[in-house]
């Protein structure tokens, strides 16, 4: 039986892991390579690595960090942040990423998504959706949450599936870093309307939140702070989930 996945996320800025609240107010959380090795040994199911500064000049630092992480872990690695063109994807895959996560570039030019899928395959292309509730509906935001794309989440979801995306990384901007739990309304909406796997992200504050988001249909749960700051280990999380009849790998 396919297991629900637990995915720790490393938000990386200038070569260091950081963690913010609602996408700002960053706090240092360690060395990415060391963290990646720890998560690999704790049976994390995958690792997501987000370059949150993602400026062109810093790109080479990021490639080096991705390469050192990939060199030391034996689980799937997804890298995102500031991916603008086919060469960016190719360079990250060469450095050892298995999948790339794209947000702004796909919103600005949806044909880029088709092109990427054609060259690298659906399984390699994750669409990151940063969502926020505005006037009672969920909307897509780009540029690290700074800019409204003026597209409803549900419309964007249909479009990216048609264009061949392999997976959705859904982040609630309202819940990100709050530790109040995932946005269940948003996640439910997206899972119900998606024929590709959905990773829920933003808001995990304890193991119960992870259980809740799996119960409403998420295929994978991403969390950062609760794992980084050692509040709970991945193995403890999985044991808790197994006790509550959620199928995870241990």
């Amino acid at each position: 039986m396919l297991a629900k996945r637990i995915i720790p996320c490393l938000d990386v800025k200038e070569g260091r892991v950081v963690k913010g609240i609602n996408f700002v107010d960053l706090k240092d959380a360690g060395d990415p390579v060391e963290q990646a090795i720890i998560y690999d040994s704790q049976l994390a199911d995958e690792l997501v690595f987000l370059d949150i500064t993602a400026s062109y000049e810093k790109r080479s630092i990021m490639i080096d960090v991705v390469a050192s992480c990939a060199q030391n872990i034996f689980m799937p690695l997804t890298v995102g942040g500031g991916i603008r063109n086919i060469d960016d994807i190719r360079n990250l895959l060469k450095a050892g990423a298995d999948k790339v996560s794209i947000n702004s570039a796909a919103v600005r030019n949806p044909d880029f998504l088709n092109e990427a899928v054609k060259i690298f395959g659906s399984q390699c292309i994750v669409i990151a959706v940063d969502a926020k509730k505005v006037n009672n509906d969920f909307f897509v935001f780009i540029d690290g949450g700074r800019k409204a794309a003026n597209i409803k989440v549900i419309d964007w979801l249909n479009e990216v599936q048609e264009r061949g995306a392999g997976e959705i990384l859904l982040t609630s901007m309202d819940k990100d870093g709050t530790k109040e739990g995932y946005d269940l309304e948003l996640t439910k909406l997206v899972c119900k309307n998606s024929s590709i796997p959905v990773i829920a992200s933003g808001g995990a504050g304890n193991v119960e939140h992870i259980k809740e988001v799996f119960e409403i249909g998420a295929d994978a749960a991403l969390a950062a702070s609760i794992f980084h700051f050692g509040e709970v280990s991945i193995i403890e999380t999985k044991k808790y989930l197994l006790q509550h009849n959620i199928n995870v790998r241990i």
Partner: peptide
């Protein structure tokens, strides 16, 4: 062929 509960790609850890 995907169904209501099982998505495609088959992605993740399975026995």
């Amino acid at each position: 062929t995907p169904n209501a509960n099982q998505k495609v790609p088959h992605m993740g850890w399975n026995t």
